[in-house]
Structure formats: structure tokens, C-alpha cells
Amino acid sequence: MGRSNREQADKNRQRIVDQAGATMRGGGVGAVSISEIMARAGLTQGGFYNHFESKEALITEACSSGFARSVQNWKARAISTRQPAAGALKRLVAFYFAKKPVEQSCPMVALGQDAAPHNASAALNEAYREGVGQFFSTFREIAHTDRSCSLSEEQLVVAFAAMVGANMLSRATGDKKWAAEVERGLVGSST
């Protein structure tokens, strides 16, 4: 019976984290309201503190969880036993720029300002920095897996920064040309 209760508590906690993450990606950290998150998770507001010591703890965990899930998605889309290694970077870039609901947008772009040192707690800033590091490591791993990729280490850094920057500019301006141009440049340079 104790195990079942623990499993349910873990599921409830993850639902709360998922709802907070989707809210943060859609509207930033300021959009996170404990009462709304708990309602969306199908739980009572009073139960929040059974799972988290503070709203900040939830926001930090949602940031880390969002990055971890996105890294898994990147790997699943780019590196697969059913697809050749050649073209892995191209698949990643296409997936990165594919239209997605705002709640599934890139956490680097969605949380960048909120996680900046002048706006965030040390814990949120650390979670964000670790997430960005995981993203770049995954980007590098996928590029090295792709036998058709000829980018040097320096070019990988520039390509990664250009990809994230173009995504941010496309999202902020509503003009998809930024993403389209970078995608075309990255896909062309990786083959």
C-alpha cells in the first residue's frame, strides 16, 4: 500500500512540474500561479506544499525537467537505430525549427530572460545553465554521430548559437525567415 501511495505522489508531482513547465514556456516564470498550476494538474492548492517547499523550488524543477525532456526529444529525433547516422544533424535542426505549440517551445528561448542572473534565483539560473550545457553537449554529440557533418568544434558553437538565436528572433518578431535562413545554412553546411 505504501508503494502505491508513493507512486501516486510521484505521478502527482510530475503532473505539477509538467503544468508549471508548460506555463513557463508559454508565458514565462511570471505566469506561474500555484492555484492555476494545481487546478490544471487536477489537484487542490492546499496539496502544493506536500510536494514542494516553495514556488521557486517548483520553477527550478520545472526548468530542469523541461531541459531533460527536450534533450530526450532531440536524441530520439536525430539518433535512431532505424535511421542512418548520416543526416542526424539535419534531422535535429529540422525538428528544432518545426512548428510546435508554445508550451513545447525551446526552453533556452522561452526561459532565457527569466533565468538570467539579474532576474532569477541562483537555483533557477544554475538549472538553466546546466540545461543549456546539456543541450550543447547533445548538439555536439549528434553532430559527431553524423558522418556527413564536417563542422569543426568552433563551427559547432557558432551553429548552435545561431540556431537558438534565430529561433528567438523568429518567435519574438513573428517572422520565420530567421529560422528558415539558419536552418538552410546549417543543413547545407552539415552535408
Rank of each mutant, 00 (worst) to 15 (best):
G2V: 11
R3S: 09
S4I: 15
R6W: 12
E7Q: 13
Q8S: 14
A9C: 03
D10V: 06
D10A: 15
N12E: 15
R13F: 02
Q14G: 09
D18K: 15
D18C: 09
D18W: 08
A20C: 06
A20S: 10
A22K: 15
T23N: 00
M24Q: 04
M24A: 06
G26S: 14
A31Q: 10
V32S: 12
I34M: 08
I34D: 03
S35N: 08
R40V: 03
A41P: 13
G42F: 10
G46C: 07
G46P: 08
G46Y: 07
G47P: 09
F48K: 04
N50H: 14
S54F: 11
S54Y: 11
K55D: 12
E56G: 09
E56F: 09
A57G: 07
L58Q: 08
L58F: 09
T60W: 05
E61D: 06
C63E: 04
C63M: 08
S65K: 15
G66Q: 14
G66Y: 14
A68E: 14
V71H: 07
Q72N: 10
N73S: 13
W74Q: 04
I79M: 07
T81L: 12
A85I: 00
A85K: 11
G87E: 04
A88I: 08
R91P: 04
L92E: 00
V93W: 13
F95R: 03
Y96K: 11
F97A: 06
F97N: 12
A98F: 06
K99V: 14
V102L: 14
E103G: 08
Q104V: 06
S105I: 05
C106I: 02
V109C: 07
A110S: 15
L111I: 01
Q113S: 12
Q113H: 14
Q113E: 15
A115C: 10
P117M: 00
P117V: 00
N119P: 08
A120E: 00
S121P: 06
L124A: 01
N125E: 05
A127L: 12
Y128I: 00
R129E: 02
E130A: 14
G133D: 09
Q134I: 03
F135P: 03
S137F: 03
T138E: 08
T138C: 13
F139T: 01
F139Y: 05
R140W: 06
S148A: 13
S152T: 14
E153M: 10
E154I: 03
E154M: 05
L156C: 02
V158I: 15
A159S: 05
A159Q: 00
V164T: 09
G165E: 11
M168P: 05
S170F: 02
A172G: 03
T173I: 00
G174H: 08
D175A: 02
A179N: 01
A179R: 08
V182Y: 11
E183M: 07
R184E: 12
S189K: 06
T191R: 10
